[in-house]
C-alpha cells in the first residue's frame, strides 16, 4: 500500500496537514491524538485511514487496529449525522433514563449500538457524561438535553436535521 501516502481526497489532505503542522510524523506516541483528529475529520476510522496513519507515524497497522478496537470511542463503521447518546450512568438511571432509552429505541426504530441505513441517526448507551445535575441526560452530537421526560423525546428527534 505504498500509494497510501499520496491520498488525494480533501479529508486525507486535512489529516496529513494536521500531522505535519503538529510535527507528528514518525511520532508513535501521538497515535491517540491523531486517531481522534482522524475520526473528527472522517466521522469514523476506515481501514484506509488506519493504514495512512500507520505509514505517517511508523506504527504497524495491527497495533493501530488494536488501539482502535480497545477504545469504545473509536468507530470503524460510519456513524449517523445525529449521534444519540443516552446516559445510563447511576444518577441518570435512578431518574429513569432506562425509560428514555426505551422510548428512543422505539421512536427511532433502532437498537442500542445501531446506525440507520440512511446514516441519519446513530443510537448508543454511554456511562456518565459528567452532567449528573441534569439527569436524565441525552447527548445529540455535542448538544446536551437534560431533565428529560419520555414525552420530550419526539421533540428532540424532530429538532435534528
Amino acid at each position: 500500500m505504498a500509494e497510501m501516502g499520496k491520498q488525494k481526497s480533501p479529508e486525507f489532505e486535512e489529516l496529513d496537514g494536521f500531522i505535519k503542522k503538529s510535527g507528528l510524523e514518525g511520532k508513535q506516541s501521538a497515535l491517540i491524538a491523531v486517531l481522534h483528529q482522524a475520526q473528527h475529520i472522517f466521522g469514523y476510522l476506515p481501514k484506509e485511514v488506519m493504514m495512512f496513519i500507520g505509514k505517517k507515524l511508523q506504527i504497524p497497522v495491527a497495533k493501530i487496529y488494536g488501539v482502535v478496537t480497545f477504545y469504545s470511542f473509536f468507530n470503524t463503521e460510519p456513524k449517523g449525522r445525529n449521534q444519540f447518546k443516552v446516559c445510563l450512568g447511576t444518577a441518570c438511571f435512578v431518574r429513569g433514563s432506562d425509560k428514555i432509552a426505551d422510548a428512543l429505541q422505539r421512536q427511532l426504530g433502532m437498537k442500542m449500538g445501531e446506525t440507520s441505513e440512511d446514516l441519519r441517526y446513530s443510537l448508543e448507551a454511554v456511562r456518565c457524561v459528567g452532567a449528573c445535575g441534569l439527569a436524565p441526560v441525552v447527548l445529540v452530537n455535542d448538544k446536551v438535553y437534560g431533565r428529560l421526560l419520555v414525552k420530550d423525546i419526539n421533540k428532540i428527534i424532530d429538532a435534528q436535521e
Partner: peptide, 9 residues
C-alpha cells in the same frame, strides 16, 4: 513482521 497484536478489550 508485526502481524499479531492484541485486539478488543
Amino acid at each position: 513482521v508485526n502481524v499479531l497484536s492484541a485486539m478488543e478489550r
